[in-house]
């Protein structure tokens, strides 16, 4: 795992740019995500992490640059296109509907129907199986309203939702930001399990302890530029902090 990851990358970003009016937020970012690996994306507030993944999710297309999936160039212009390629996002602010239950949330926007009406049994079963395959054990009933769930359970549902339809790349934007110790543990275990099932995971986090606990690769964004993408085993906390704060840059070590 310490070796630079071999094989075809699942998703590759090459020199993507994104600006809002005169403000240039992403200034030529390249990033590689491999299947079955957890790639952590770190960087200070405002570095452009969320902007980077919104482009991948098709929510906010890039201005220029290339996106390759399985080595082939793709255009991402909407959430549905991203989903069709197997790219799923779990957003920083959870995108769940409180008034719907777990099954309804997991299938929202892609409900199973037969004769134009819901096949509730099938949806319930698939939801249940997906939660089980992620070893989720704290959910009492899949027909619970999401409003009755704890923060960790909601995060769990959001992640399970993302892998329901055979996702290939799951992007998590600060999934543990609002969680306690035990629930953070659970979510991180879930992230590992995703990778073990062959899913490529892109994890955004400010918590370096979490990052080192689960990540195979660490990518550091500094002011809209990718300053490093290195295997977690080849680096340490101080190193990463130096990249994040800009006191270390890719060319001249220890600027």
């Amino acid at each position: 795992m310490a070796e630079p990851t071999p094989g075809t990358p699942l998703v590759e970003l090459i020199d993507v740019h994104k600006g809002f009016g005169p403000v240039s937020v992403l200034k030529g970012v390249s990033l590689t995500v491999y299947p079955g690996k957890v790639t952590a994306l770190v960087g200070d507030n405002g570095a452009g992490k969320s902007t980077l993944i919104k482009g991948l999710a098709g929510v906010q297309p890039y201005d220029s640059g290339q996106v390759l999936v399985d080595g082939r160039r793709v255009d991402l212009h909407g959430p549905r296109e991203a989903a069709a390629l197997g790219i799923e996002v779990v957003y920083q602010d959870l995108a769940l509907c409180d008034n719907l239950d777990i099954v309804q949330n997991m299938f929202l926007g892609r409900e199973e129907t037969s004769w134009g009406t819901f096949d509730e049994g099938r949806m319930e079963r698939e939801a249940s199986e997906t939660l089980r395959s992620l070893s989720v054990r704290t959910v009492k009933s899949v027909r619970q309203k999401v409003s009755s769930l704890s923060g960790g359970q909601r995060q769990t549902v959001a992640i399970a939702r993302s892998v329901l339809k055979k996702a290939r790349l799951v992007i998590l934007d600060e999934p543990t930001a609002a969680l306690g110790v035990a629930q953070t543990e659970q979510v991180l275990a879930l992230v590992r399990r995703l990778a073990e099932q062959g899913v490529g995971v892109l994890l955004i986090s400010h918590n370096l302890a979490d990052v080192f606990a689960v990540a195979d690769d660490i990518a550091v964004l500094y002011l809209g530029q990718m300053v490093a993408q290195i295997p977690a085993a080849d680096t340490d906390r101080d190193d990463v902090v130096a990249y994040i704060t800009g006191s270390k840059s890719p060319e001249g070590e220890a600027a």
Binding site: G78, A83, L94, A95, G109
Partner: peptide
Amino acid sequence: GGNAEAARRSGI
């Protein structure tokens, strides 16, 4: 009605 933004992100 529950969460319009969540619905939008789900492709609705």
